[in-house]
């Protein structure tokens, strides 16, 4: 196992995203579809934060940006 870094975070983000996609496609119930959407939104937020942490550390954009889809 490697030292966790950006790629690990992005992998988690992508996996969450596609788990969300899978749930969104298989479920036929509004509430469960909403839950899958939440997963997708969260994967996006996770990516924002990860990029802020590992790539563009000079600005606090990540938390601010991630606040927007959260609302």
């Amino acid at each position: 196992m490697m030292e966790p870094g950006l790629y690990h975070m992005l992998f988690i983000g992508a996996a969450l995203f596609f788990i969300g996609i899978y749930g969104f496609l298989t479920r036929r119930n509004l509430i469960t579809m909403l839950m899958s959407l939440e997963l997708i939104l969260n994967s996006v937020c996770l990516n924002f934060i990860a990029f802020n942490r590992y790539v563009w550390t000079d600005r606090a954009t990540g938390p601010s940006m991630s606040a927007v889809p959260r609302i």
Binding site: L6, Y22, L25, Y54, V55, W56, T57, R59
Partner: peptide, 26 residues
Amino acid sequence: AALLGMGLVMLQLVAHPFPTPAVAEV
């Protein structure tokens, strides 16, 4: 669909080099 998408994204991820931060943390 999910697995395909995941595979494509992973391919992109591995291929793409991200710049390492040059500036000190804010």
